[in-house]
Amino acid sequence: MEYSHNDAELIQQPIGYWSWAAYKAVVDRTRAALAGIGTTQPQWWVLAQVARADTARTRDEVSRLLRNYLDTGSDTMESEIDSTITRGWITEDSEGRLTITAEGRAFYDKAAALQDELWAERHAGVSDEEYVTTLKVLQRFIHNTGGRAWHQ
């Protein structure tokens, strides 16, 4: 890979631009790949939360957990939960508990395999040590600017 600048020039580059450019590239690629198999990124989040849960999660729990992720918003998450129900991937009981269906499990497995492929694509040529260092540096930037990340 050829880099845009040498090290002396990179030290002068704005983190805001490069973190945004990385975010945009990763999110655009992920969303396009998920669209290619017929889903949206928020629908994937809903499906993953329900499929991976040890006990049934309620609609409110899933919506509350995901509504601020990537600035999605509560209205969008409610709509995306409804879409996963309409598609037959999850069901909702009278108490709002969400359960994955057989069709949902099959689709989840397909989408999870795609996510694994995307992970490998993104991490090509990046060591685990470099990845961890990158995340620690980004967390330090968030802390230093008074920000708060979703996972904190």
Rank of each mutant, 00 (worst) to 15 (best):
I100P: 08
A111M: 07
T84R: 03
E95S: 13
H151Q: 10
T72P: 01
A32T: 13
W20A: 01
E61V: 09
D7W: 15
N144Y: 08
V46T: 03
R64S: 15
E92T: 05
E2T: 09
E61M: 05
L66S: 05
T86S: 10
Q139W: 13
K136G: 10
P14N: 07
S127I: 11
D28L: 07
Q43M: 08
L138T: 05
T30A: 05
G88W: 00
T76K: 12
R105Y: 00
H143R: 13
Q139A: 15
W119R: 09
A33P: 00
E130C: 08
V137S: 14
T55G: 08
T55F: 06
G73C: 09
L135F: 05
V132R: 15
W44T: 02
G146C: 03
A56Q: 10
S19G: 03
L138Q: 12
Q152E: 15
I37L: 14
L70P: 04
H5Y: 14
D93P: 01
T134D: 12
E61G: 06
Y131N: 13
I100A: 09
V50A: 02
A33E: 07
S83Y: 08
R122F: 15
K136T: 04
V26R: 12
S127R: 09
R59K: 09
H143I: 11
G73V: 04
A106Y: 02
H151C: 10
T58M: 01
R52N: 12
I85G: 01
A149R: 07
Y17I: 02
F141K: 11
A112H: 09
T76Q: 04
N6H: 11
S79L: 11
S94G: 13
W45C: 14
L34Y: 02
N68Y: 14
A22N: 05
L135Q: 10
T30N: 06
M1T: 14
L135M: 12
Q152G: 14
M1Q: 10
E129P: 08
R31I: 11
K110S: 08
I81W: 00
L114V: 07
W150F: 00
E129V: 10
D109V: 04
N144A: 12
A111L: 07
T40R: 06
